[in-house]
Design a protein around this nucleic acid. Structure first.
Lengths: 220, 220
DNA sequence: CATCTATTCAAGAGTTTTATTGAATACTTA
DNA sequence: TAAGTATTCAATAAAACTCTTGAATAGATG
């Protein structure tokens, strides 16, 4: 008879390939970034502050366990998540970590609440205010990510642009800024800049995918 | 201003703790086993064919990332999953791996379908047949796991016992056997034994948790 | 109190990861 | 075709991980 141990060993070794993809902080960061849309190796390297060679190596590990796939586009190799399910899976990993690890809660509190006294807005609240035309919604991520997907009604104004054009922006309109979710600080900076100019600005902790989730529930 | 890199580095390091838990085949096997109920270190070591010291070490890694928790009971230390959500999460890891990795599909096919020409039964089918009193449902896992949770109407007959008492079992009744799901071979062996005695026996690929999931959907 | 037992600890060897560096490759574009 | 650019490859050093072995510990039981 076939050895049960044999099956188990083979099987869990395979399962662990997925686990190994998630066992390196850097790889997790890459995966998270890719969940906001396809990116070139160079772009990933720049936004994650890693060397290109290192990113390339990690991407190959990820491709090996079928977490990402790539295609050549012009001079660039564009990587993206191999499957939508992976994005969902990453989210559940985050929520699990947030629930189980006190450390994460602490980091979150320290960096997001205490350090920046920035008022947050909830999704239903945002929707209401937008319908009434009370606020302008700002997507401060890079333009490409906005093009990939954005919250309906949002205006694209990447954080770099915001920094430059700050002086020429109107100040008479309330603003809500969002970026790549809770752990991304671009919207935090945006709100700080705007507030310093006297604009009533708020941060949306949620991101595009949260919005899509939210709308799906509403429609159901 | 606070370094965004700083936040990211800290954060993903924490997230990766969960990933690291899942990056070792042995740890995954332990987690899976624990998803069927609390177990002592010794029991885990025996069923996974690992040394006690090694299991203890892995369990400590897992406890460190808050995947499992332990309590002292008599002479034993009993470990269990720290949270029900972890069980769900493990399942989604399995389904992801099964979907993405051709290897897993191959292993499954090789070990479960080709090698054993054993007819499987689906959950709705099982329910129908049980309601009509046409089949006996056998839970061939260790007694403790049956006590922890089992499919309603199932009879506990651990595989070892089945082996011993085989000769004294009735042969005039159709049987469906189940154990720890798709990748566990105890039910396969049970079916083989029973079939060799001339009993009409079938395998249920699903397990208790699948059943619970199934019932929940039905009730909704 | 002494013994027994399940578990943990500690040290070490062997392997596997990870980031770095510099070169190689493959593809564009002028 | 030649130059340029994005990515990958290859080699290496440092760090982390995994399993084993044998001893230590803590708690239960006689």
């Amino acid at each position: 008879m076939i050895n049960e141990r044999n099956l188990k060993d083979l099987l869990y070794q395979e399962f662990a390939r997925v686990g190994k993809s998630l066992s390196s902080p850097k790889r997790l960061e890459i995966l998270d970034l890719l969940s906001y849309g396809p990116k070139s190796v160079e772009t990933i390297a720049k936004t994650t502050a890693m060397s290109v060679a290192n990113v390339s190596q990690h991407l190959q590990t990820l491709a090996n366990s079928k977490m990402v796939k790539s295609k050549k586009q012009g001079n660039y190799v564009i990587y993206e998540l191999a499957d939508e399910e992976i994005s969902t899976f990453l989210e559940s990993l985050h929520s699990l970590a947030e629930k189980q690890l006190v450390q994460v809660q602490q980091i979150k509190r320290e960096f997001l609440n205490e350090q920046f006294g920035i008022e947050g807005v909830s999704l239903p609240e945002l929707k209401k205010r937008m319908e009434r035309g009370e606020v302008m919604l700002l997507d401060v991520r890079p333009k490409e990510e906005y093009d990939e997907a954005h919250i309906p009604g949002a205006v694209s104004l990447p954080i770099e642009e915001l920094r430059e054009k700050l002086a020429s922006l109107p100040t008479n309109c309330d603003v809500v800024a969002y970026c790549r979710g809770t752990y991304c600080l671009m919207s935090v900076e945006a709100v700080e800049l705007l507030q310093a100019r006297g604009v009533k600005a708020f941060r949306l902790e949620k991101d595009v995918r949260d919005w899509m989730e939210f709308e799906k529930k509403g429609i159901k």
